[in-house]
């Protein structure tokens, strides 16, 4: 499986990372080196093996479905690059 420039462009967009056109060939080459390394996994017989979901056998704890946190909008917004009137501000999303 070889990654071409078109695929590299698509992956960069899916990852929401802007990659300049002139950097795409190098990126595709890097992907190919890493994926070539990963290809080794095809040698392993995984017939009948369940994919691991949890490394230690544990049952997720349950708790009451109640509010345990909140009422701190200033703290939540304190690190925002742009916060106005108690909200996160972003560029216009809908026309």
């Amino acid at each position: 499986m070889s990654i071409d420039i078109e695929t590299a462009r698509k992956v960069a967009h899916l990852a929401r990372i802007k990659v300049e056109e002139d950097r795409l060939p190098e990126l595709a080459e890097n992907f190919n080196a890493i994926l070539g390394f990963i290809e080794q996994l095809n040698e392993v017989d995984v017939e009948g093996v369940e994919p691991m979901t949890s490394v230690t056998p544990m049952r997720l704890k349950r708790r009451e479905d109640v509010v345990t946190d909140g009422n701190m909008p200033e703290k939540v917004l304190s690190n925002a690059p742009d916060a106005r009137e108690g909200f996160f501000a972003v560029p216009k999303v809908v026309e």
Binding site: V11, A12, A15, F31, L41, E50, P51, M52
Partner: peptide, 25 residues
């Protein structure tokens, strides 16, 4: 981006699920 690729439609089973099976082994 590698992570995005291995999780993307069509490759999830071939890469991600296979890796999780190998992890179990």
């Amino acid at each position: 981006m590698v992570g995005t690729y291995v999780l993307s439609a069509g490759f999830y089973d071939a890469y991600y699920n296979r890796a999780r099976k190998v992890r179990a082994l």
